[in-house]
Design a protein around this nucleic acid. Structure first.
Lengths: 318, 318
DNA sequence: TATAATGGTGACAGGAGTTGTCATAAATAT
DNA sequence: ATATTTATGACAACTCCTGTCACCATTATA
């Protein structure tokens, strides 16, 4: 193999096996150790962060960083990647240790001149907005670890009733509307619940004397909904929606599976809801104003009336 | 210069000048044309999409794609980039011609094994969710072009009053909550307005006999708000919020500048609003239920009462 | 139609750069 | 001590890279 090709191949190999010896590579590439040594020095000069230790159990290592081999991106692709990463700046917290901005600036700097110009032109003209949040979610990494490695996490969680300790086994984390959520198996309830990450005052690996992890490897963000136990008494939700009502509902995550469309843009919500969720839906439907008409359950209409009565009362007497 | 280094340098040069002749490069690199020809063939084999035309004014060209030189990313950075791009899959429409998925799969495939494993582990455990929308926004590219090149765009826009033609000069586009918006100077109103891109039934460059572009180069997504003319009669909004109310308001884009916090997590909304926006705020505050108390303006309270009366009526007589 | 500009290919000799071998050194784990 | 491993220099052998030349094909332009 000619040297120019060997160097590129070496670059990939070296990234694959992060630790290796000169001899090993020499055999793999069918050249002498001396040659590999010379090659590694060249890679080093090209920017591959190599580190070596002499002695038994010594050898070469690639530090921290990985070299991405030359990749062909179309201009559009490069720009799409840029703005996707750019969008992450709206998040106060991310589950990755690094800031996305460091990756972004590397990417930007390596881009050829005209793509960079194009990006500069677009920078203030395109954005993916996420509401920026007041509250922080510092425990994302540990929750994600727990989800990947099937570990039990002990959290202090602030719910409406106050702060309490809970043992949970995370299924994953997701950001929606600028807030981080963590669906997890709750050992207290014996079921899957969604927790808001910014309401966790602390989160640690629950190692000693605590609940044993259960097998949730097959449960992930994509399929967790199907697994919710239906313990609670349910009611059938049926709400007719105007066109504007449909558009507002599309913004709601929970509505995804319940929302149906007519051809003219109007639609309706239909599905089972827990009776304990009725206050939530009452507020929501009230916010839709005249764009929604509740057909069922009657309890929901009652809840709305009650809520309106309270509001009325507030403004009449204040 | 040894060949291995020349190839890398050539890769960059070729990306910089997208069109070039063999002779040109031969002089630049101080080698013969024959060598350059051989080198270019090798680059081609390495994946650089080169295209050549013979004859006068012919020469080499790099097609569409650019080669990113080898970049060193830390594992965390690579992962952050991956998930940022991954998040774009929630969007039905993007202003980039390419799908983000093609860039993503390239990126993924070139990644070294263990980073890929790590990503696979995280794939179903981390997500940035954006509500997926029913409506399409096919005119994003043309709007973005208009914003960058200061062009007037003729759109057919569906507002509450029906469909009408309008001439606008876009300032930029942004996605929020899965919907695309386009702040633009509206020649009809003589002011900056925000349009929803999915309500544009068509969008074309307005070339003939139409309004001339005005100079909006200094106006962009970051500063457009300061430039809104305050023509309309305004009212002072003041709404007190419970803790839960604050959290709901944080999700609203418009609330950013109006939302204030108390130390205990409660807060209030304060700021000027146009009187024509009162119906909007009425619905919004109603959706907050008991979590909000309107202090001002009185017209807002009236609007809420009226709305509640309508809703009440609906359920009493149906 | 001729001409010049451009890419494309094959052959070949000379030589630049690459390679393997050997010697030697230094560090370190067992 | 000994084995393992990186590190460096020198030098001959030799690979493969390079330039030159010859020739062809295509195409814009005079």
């Amino acid at each position: 193999m000619p040297k120019s090709k060997r160097l590129l191949a070496l670059m990939m190999t070296v990234n694959r096996k992060r630790k290796f010896t000169v001899k090993e590579l020499a055999q793999e590439f069918e050249v002498s150790s001396r040659t590999i040594l010379r090659d590694l020095q060249e890679l080093s000069e090209l920017g591959v962060p190599l580190y070596s230790e002499v002695g038994p159990h010594g050898g070469y290592q690639v530090l921290n960083e990985r070299i991405l081999p030359p990749i062909a991106f179309t201009e559009e692709e490069a720009i799409a990647i840029f703005f996707a990463c750019h969008a992450l700046r709206h998040y106060a917290c991310l589950p990755f240790k690094t800031e996305a901005s460091s990756a972004l600036s590397k990417f930007y700097n390596y881009m050829s001149g005209d793509v960079r110009d194009r990006i500069d032109q677009m920078k203030n003209r395109v954005d993916f907005i996420t509401p920026s949040r007041h509250s922080e979610s510092p425990h994302l990494s540990i929750l994600l670890d727990g989800a990947i490695d099937q570990k039990v996490i002990l959290i202090e969680y602030e719910s409406r009733e106050g702060i309490a300790s809970r043992e949970i086994q995370p299924i994953g984390i997701y950001a929606s509307n600028g807030l981080w959520y963590c669906p997890a198996y709750c050992f207290l309830r014996g079921d899957i619940r969604v927790f808001r990450c910014d309401r966790m005052h602390s989160a640690v690996h629950a190692s000693d004397s605590s609940s044993k992890p259960i097998d949730l490897r097959h449960v992930h963000l994509g399929n967790r909904e199907a697994l919710n136990k239906a313990e609670e008494e349910e009611a059938i939700l049926h709400v007719e929606l105007s066109k504007e009502g449909v558009q507002k509902c599309e913004a709601e995550l929970w509505a995804g599976s319940k929302l149906h469309f007519n051809n003219d843009g109007t639609g309706w919500l239909e599905g089972n809801i827990g009776k304990s969720d009725i206050p939530f839906f009452a507020k929501f439907v009230l916010g839709l104003g005249n764009e929604a008409t509740v057909k069922s359950p009657p309890q929901l209409v009652d809840a709305m009336k009650e809520m309106m009565a309270k509001i009325m009362a507030k403004y009449n007497f204040e």
